[in-house]
Amino acid sequence: MIKEMTCVVCPNGCLLQVEYEKQGDQVAIQRITGNLCKRGLEYARQEMVSPRRTIASSILVEGGSMPLVSVRTSGPIPKAMIFPVMAEIRKCSVKAPVQAGTVLIPNVLDLGVDIIATRTVE
């Protein structure tokens, strides 16, 4: 079987073709084409097993020069966990000042990924 997908790793957005066989619940990838770099291969493999995405959002800041601090996940999370993670982000609030790079929610929902501030709010 062949599955086409757009690689989201970089702006090139390569259109990948993944040839695979289904063996019960397992997927055996035979060939990946269309990628301009190695990261495309990795992306395709992950996408076939369990798609993951990095997400960005904002967390409420109390007493800061801005009402929000922008945040992102420190790494990709399973697609199915995007909305549960958003709910955690929505629940969270922090007190100013916040430094860019600070972990605001460590190991969110035990996913092994942190929610980190991407800007400084004084």
Binding site: V9, C10, A56, R72, A100, R119
Partner: peptide, 24 residues
């Protein structure tokens, strides 16, 4: 500053940054 999504910097810095991080 308002582009909080990631995906910036792959060409210039070789890593994927959010807008505020790229600016920073």
């Amino acid at each position: 500053k308002q582009c909080i999504h990631d995906g910036f910097g792959l060409t210039r810095f070789g890593e994927s940054l959010s807008g505020p991080e790229y600016a920073d």
